[in-house]
């Protein structure tokens, strides 16, 4: 059972990773990031059931989701600011800082 969960979590993590690295649009990258966080949360939740240390795992999942939410707020505002500034929300449009 746990192998299946870990496979799903690994797959999700890898998909998120691929999105982060390969996709051009910022939102797609953001989604990839969230996907990786969710994969980690899934793994954590599963392990929490098995672990003997009580509720530590579950508390961790809750806190991770809270932190992910906070991150999302900040991330989306930044992406929107880029959009409003007239530049396409693409990774390539933000290349002035170089060298």
């Amino acid at each position: 059972m746990s192998a299946l969960i870990w496979a799903v979590s690994g797959l999700l993590f890898f998909l998120g990773l691929a999105a982060v690295v390969l996709r051009r649009q910022l939102l797609a990258v953001f989604l990839g990031m969230e996907l990786m966080v969710v994969a980690a949360a899934l793994a954590l939740g599963h392990e929490a059931t098995r672990a003997a240390a009580g509720a530590e795992g579950f508390v961790a999942v809750l806190l991770v989701l809270a932190v992910a939410a906070a991150e999302a707020v900040v991330g989306l505002t930044l992406v929107l600011r880029v959009h409003w500034s007239g530049r396409p929300a693409e990774a390539d449009s933000l290349r002035e800082l170089r060298g």
């Binding site: 982060v20 910022l26 990774a91 933000l94 800082l97 170089r98």
Partner: peptide, 17 residues
């Protein structure tokens, strides 16, 4: 070394990974 830093987000993420 300077040219290595292309400034694009995906490259820096690629390096992180």
């Amino acid at each position: 070394g300077g040219r290595l830093a292309t400034g694009s987000i995906s490259d820096s993420l690629w390096w992180v990974m």
